[in-house]
Design a protein around this nucleic acid. Structure first.
Length: 419
RNA sequence: GUGGGCGUAGCUCAGUUGGCAGAGCGCCAGGUUGUGGUCCUGGAUGUCGGGGGUUCAAGUCCCCUCGCUCACCCCA
């Protein structure tokens, strides 16, 4: 084998690949039902968009971007996340001058240059939803409820919703100062010390036990929220409770992208290796302005498709059975029969019946084996004898019962049998 | 970027103190010259990840390298 998928990437193959489609659909169905419209943006953008949008201090920007120069000398980057692109598209096309909020969803590939491990790949898939241009706790709650229902519809049981508020431009600076003062006194490695100055909140999110131990008495943002943020957060919590969506307050939930304000949340699951998050998001009231747009308070999330599938596998929700894609399978014997079968197969498909046939000039035995493996309910056997009689043998593969029916009627008869 | 584990058939893996490369599953064919799934019989498939070294002899020991994988950091 001379070629393989690039490091950190992988192929989806049947029958697992079918699950990708199903999971994507299930995750976005609640959002579509809630009036969100589909948006598709380029898989690469101006590098500067991500630097400004995601944040120069984030790991995503400093070490995980696939950046390249095109033939015109522009610096482009494969998108590491979806929100910055969506905001850019909204601003570029002035969607924010219309009815607010602008509600959009997307589904597609994302790219981050990382060392791959279970649940974390260089090429991965997210579905996302964004509601732009409204400051309303009901919008935060709506998105969370919709994501929650997406997971529930897939049958996931062990999803935990973590919730926090990061404050806004009123209260965050004061909190930040208190936090920095606290963090400076700790015994931390150099990289973490540097982070104190760049984005001290993210130190709270450090997963290392030796760091967490020192953070036991750290000042928490919930204790420093201004009245407006506090009221906003309480309303989000109330709406979630009223909706029957259980959540866990996590005062140290910060998340790795710089643009978040107020509400942040994460859906975590134990079945995806050490990558607990299968989805996450939050409010990003300042992002539009960072990208040169007008104030556009917004909220959104992204759900990891491949991580969701890992979570489903961990819960035993993906049995690989029933790979059947067709209901009927044609077994032609001889070249005349083969031509007639080719037409018949097309007639069946046109009639809405999933149909395949034996290709490759195999014998009857091989063709019947193909019929069996296709998962089809019926095999249609057509040989010279049948052709002469203008008939075809219909074999029920579950009972081995075989009947001869007129060729002219077989489509209608199969339609009846398959109802 | 850092650390651990693993590379043998399409897949999952065995391979003893260094001594003719194997099993199960899958695949193909036959048993049934027009009938699958069960059963029986037979068959094909390997640069043992790659390169170098030690040795009469290397899948096995040593060195280098590539790849995969898990974890750290971080994130979906």
């Amino acid at each position: 084998m001379s070629f393989q998928a690039p490091k950190g990437t992988f192929d989806w193959l049947p029958p697992r690949s079918e699950r990708v489609l199903a999971v994507r659909e299930a995750l976005v169905a609640p959002v579509r039902q809630a009036g969100y419209g589909y948006v598709e943006t380029p898989t690469f953008e101006d590098t500067e968009l991500f630097k400004r949008g995601v944040g120069e201090s984030t790991d995503v920007v400093t070490k995980e971007m696939y950046t390249f120069e095109d033939k015109g000398g522009r610096s482009l980057t494969l998108r590491p996340e979806g929100t910055a692109s969506v905001v850019r598209a909204v601003l570029q096309h002035s969607l924010h001058n219309g009815r607010l909020p602008v509600k959009l969803w997307y589904s597609g590939s994302q790219y981050r240059y990382e060392r791959a491990q279970r649940g974390r790949y260089r090429h991965f898939w997210q579905v996302g939803a964004e509601a732009l241009g409204a400051e309303d706790p009901a919008l935060d709650a709506e998105l969370i409820v919709l994501a929650w229902r997406g997971y529930a519809d897939l049958g996931l049981r062990d999803v935990t919703l973590l919730l926090n508020s990061l404050g806004d431009k009123e209260c965050r600076p004061a909190y930040r100062a208190v936090l920095v003062e606290f963090l400076r006194k700790l015994d931390l490695d150099e990289a973490t010390r540097a982070r104190i100055d760049i984005n001290p909140l993210r130190v709270l999110d450090d997963g290392r036990p030796e760091v967490q131990a020192q953070l036991a008495g750290a000042p928490l943002v919930v204790d420093h929220l201004c009245e407006a943020c506090k009221a906003y957060h309480e309303e989000v919590r109330l709406l979630l409770s009223d909706s029957g969506v259980p959540f866990t307050d996590d005062p140290k939930l910060v998340r790795g992208l710089d643009y978040y304000t107020r509400t942040t949340f994460e859906f975590v699951h134990g079945g995806v290796g050490s990558q607990a998050a299968i989805g996450g998001g939050g409010r990003y009231d300042g992002l539009s302005e960072m990208l040169g747009g007008p104030p556009l308070p917004s909220v959104g999330w992204a759900l990891g498709v491949d991580r969701t599938i890992l979570a489903m596998e961990a819960e035993g929700l993906l049995d690989d059975e029933s790979d059947a894609r067709v209901q009927v399978y044609g077994v032609p014997l001889g070249s005349d029969a083969r031509r007639r079968m080719f037409r018949l197969v097309e007639e069946l498909r046109t009639a809405g019946i999933g149909t395949d046939m034996a290709f490759g000039g195999r014998g009857v035995k091989g063709a019947m084996k193909g019929a069996d493996r296709s998962g089809a309910r019926f095999a249609l056997i057509l040989g010279e004898r049948d052709l002469a009689a203008q008939a075809v043998q219909v074999k029920d593969l579950t009972t081995a019962e075989q009947t001869e029916v007129p060729l002219a009627e077989v489509v209608e008869i199969l339609k009846g049998k398959l109802q």
